[in-house]
Design a protein around this nucleic acid. Sequence first.
DNA 1: TAAAAATACTCCATAGGTATTTTAT
DNA 2: ATAAAATACCTATGGAGTATTTTTA
Lengths: 297, 297
Amino acid sequence: MDDFRLRVFVEVAHQLSFTKAAQELFVSQPAVTKHIQELENLFRVQLFERSGGRITLTEAGKLFLARAESILDGYRRLKLEMNLLTDSFDGELRLGASTTIAQYLLPEVMARYIARYPDVKLSLMTGNSRQVEEALSDRRIDLGLVEGCSHQPGLKYMRFADDELVLVTGARNAAAREEISLEELLSLPLVLRETGSGTLEVIEQALAAHHVRLSQLRILLQMGTTEGIKSFLAGSDAYAIVSVVAVARELAEGRLRVVEVNGLELKREFAFVHPQGGGHELAEHFMRFASLVPLYG
Amino acid sequence: MDDFRLRVFVEVAHQLSFTKAAQELFVSQPAVTKHIQELENLFRVQLFERSGGRITLTEAGKLFLARAESILDGYRRLKLEMNLLTDSFDGELRLGASTTIAQYLLPEVMARYIARYPDVKLSLMTGNSRQVEEALSDRRIDLGLVEGCSHQPGLKYMRFADDELVLVTGARNAAAREEISLEELLSLPLVLRETGSGTLEVIEQALAAHHVRLSQLRILLQMGTTEGIKSFLAGSDAYAIVSVVAVARELAEGRLRVVEVNGLELKREFAFVHPQGGGHELAEHFMRFASLVPLYG
DNA sequence: TAAAAATACTCCATAGGTATTTTAT
DNA sequence: ATAAAATACCTATGGAGTATTTTTA
């Protein structure tokens, strides 16, 4: 429940187009026109300047926008608080996440979420951080999960979990030691993710801190997916640097082993991303929920 | 414009009665019932406990009330800001004021107000401070103006103007001096307001500070209205203690003269009173306006 | 049994739609 | 000429009413 006329106004103010706002809100363009006219008549104020192909907000319109958004925010809080009270949620929540999160963290969280809240329709889009942020800006998703915080304007970031990349090898690799030095790492046969992946960027930066370039590594192979890398390791004595969340199960079941590289820190952060102005009410709830789910099993 | 369903809920929450809320909002009782049911269905929350002849707010209802009031406040601000922008106001504003203010200050302010805002319907109820505060609590008026601040719970006070009581006498009173001592005051023939009036209370308190009781004064006569006192002075050499605003014209035109009483301070404050939770939007505007009108002009 | 809340039904104002015209680049 | 906003007109839903029943002190 909220005030649809205010929502129409806010949408038009953001889109600066009656037609686009109509599409966004799934109503006809004349309906939007009428709502805006009604508001303008009601308050005897012109909210939009129609001269020139583009429409613009008048001064009154800007004031109106601020107030209207605060009222709509009030409705969102109301709904959220009532839902928290009864612990019942419904609706649709479109998530977007970068590969590692989408593959290894979110499925667990999403499964628990829909188990508890079966009336919520979840969907998940996968892409790299930039694509996720774009999807958010385009309103194709409601909540994003990315590696690191690029601090895009108009988006708000909130820490979700810490991640660490580790050097692993197959459990049957007889030559593997428990820990090695950075120099020794340079001579090991490595399988890494492809150029351009967030994972590889973290490795590159961590090495740079020790004045080592990627090209100095003995890279056997680069693969597009972490699953592929894991399969490869099963039948080889090579090593790989992967997110610890991606190999949690294999480590627990003893199929892979961690090899400590002294002095090399490969940490990063996973973070929620969502539009500044507080968008979807379920997004907020999902974030709360996710931060309570025990990860890594 | 606002969300009528929320207003219905808030009214019911305050009245704790569907029927009374309906009367207050000028709608039928079934309409109120339906609105509340709709809200309860929408959020799947029980807002009122119906067991026992009286209805009461549930915990959820209390939370809902807080949020709903904040949303409605948002609408009020929106309206007020838009109106300020166009400097156009309409609607009804019911004022209540204690005698002196109602007779000597408000007429001027009200006249200017309706001259500038002809679409506002003003009305004025007169009574003593207690009656004005009662009328506010009963929602029979929207804004009050009283002498002094008794700081009733649930009401908010805002300074409006300073007032001073002065000793006056007819201009033709040959015996009148420009200033006298407190002792000399005791021997003067006085005309005062009736027992129980705010004016007399101020005099009583000020004298008490000098350990003088009302009974020590030479009270010729007590009258119910300041106008009566003024008429009496016109044909007599008596003195009176009245609010300076009540005799501003007579002093300016030389029909009455002030006699200074050394060491006697008869000051008080006029204040606006209005309900805590921000009620009528016009009330706020009228207060702003009134504080800009040059008084005693 | 009396007062308040809930239900049943009727009616109409308005939000929304489609088709079309106007406006502005 | 084209794309967007405004207008005209129609429809149907939901909000409001009256009359009535149910509830509970």
